[in-house]
């Protein structure tokens, strides 16, 4: 018994001064492990015949064992924490090493521009239509009120395709406007659509021209669409696309498929820039698609995606937009 009491005197300071987990484990084995005094004492319990005494002695042993176990556990926690801390201190990373970066490509700025323009109009209640790029003369010209002898039909302006014997010429659409007629033929009013897509002209590549470029066509037809609606819609679009303070002005112009027709100019980056062509749908177009021009009115507009992107991103040479150089494409991220 005296030995046990002595243990409570001598062991705790040893536990407290144990400097490592290994040292602590040695103390533990020595004091409460198999060969320890406590183990001996427990084994000696069997020799105590008096039940009362055996119970009391057993309780006393347990009390001591529990106390030592607690002390050891507490010390172990402290030592473990310290040792982990020490280990982590040496496990250092150079955080300035370039990270393991997943690759990132980009969508083309023309795609981004068209998507954003489309989204603005979707927000105004429009939907999206797309049409063929190889188109008939009828949809590209005739249905849009281009006279049979209109100069746009010349080979100096329009690219034609050799597509066998046909009743009419097959060509590469010169604008996205053919979808006006195609869509109206297939749908009753109200029609609110935007048509993004590739268009083609017989132009050599230079700083402002490319034989392939992109347009976004818009068409709004209902029983009471007015020129005021055209102005308001395009002004709102411009504010959303170029910034809320962007001023616009509308200047009379001429297109065969709209009347009155206008060019919209916007004041951005300190100057007036011609942005797009627009106008009220010419009644002749309604007649071509089977709408009653006395019952519906509408407006249409067409803008060049390249032009919009160039104005917005400070691109002065269109050739940058057709260059597959990844040093350019990286900037589109």
């Amino acid at each position: 018994m005296t030995d046990l009491t002595n243990l409570l005197q001598s062991v705790p300071p040893a536990i407290a001064s144990a400097g490592s987990l290994v040292e602590l484990e040695a103390i533990e084995a020595e004091t409460i492990g198999r060969g320890s005094g406590i183990a001996d004492a427990r084994r000696g319990l069997g020799g105590i015949t008096d039940a009362q005494e055996r119970r009391e002695t057993g309780r006393a042993i347990n009390d001591v064992a529990q106390e030592l176990t607690r002390l050891i556990a507490d010390r172990r926690a402290v030592l473990a924490l310290a040792e982990e801390d020490e280990r982590l201190q040496t496990d250092r990373a150079d955080v300035t090493l370039p990270g393991r970066r997943p690759p990132l490509g980009s969508t083309h700025v023309i795609t981004q521009t068209m998507d954003e323009i489309v989204d603005i109009f979707v927000g105004l209640g429009y939907t999206v239509a797309r049409g063929p790029e190889a188109e008939t003369d009828f949809y590209n010209f005739t249905a849009l009120n281009f006279h049979e002898t209109h100069p746009s039909r010349l080979e100096s302006d329009t690219l034609y395709l050799d597509y066998g014997e046909q009743e009419e010429e097959i060509l590469l659409r010169t604008h996205t406007s053919p979808m006006q007629a195609r869509y109206m033929e297939q749908h009753d009013p109200p029609v609110f659509i935007v048509v993004p897509g590739k268009v083609f002209r017989a132009d050599a590549v230079d700083a402002t021209h490319s034989p392939v470029f992109h347009q976004i066509e818009g068409l709004a037809v209902d029983d009471s669409i007015t020129f005021a609606d055209l102005k308001g819609t395009l002004a709102e679009f411009t504010r959303q696309f170029f910034g809320k303070d962007t001023e616009v002005k509308f200047i009379p112009h001429y297109f065969p498929f709209t009347e009155p027709s206008a060019e919209m100019h916007a004041y951005t980056k300190g100057r007036w820039i011609e942005l797009l062509g627009c106008g009220m749908v010419n009644p002749a177009v309604f007649e071509h698609v089977g709408y009653d021009p006395d019952k519906v009115t509408g407006f249409a507009f067409g803008m060049g995606a390249e032009r919009m992107a160039m104005v917005r991103h400070g691109i002065t040479d269109l050739r940058a937009l057709i260059d597959p150089d990844q040093r350019i494409l990286e900037q589109y991220r």
Partner: peptide
Amino acid sequence: GFASIPETVPSGPGGGLP
């Protein structure tokens, strides 16, 4: 004068992004 014509913004019937 085009400038004297007011600006109004009609909303389409929707349909969203197909």
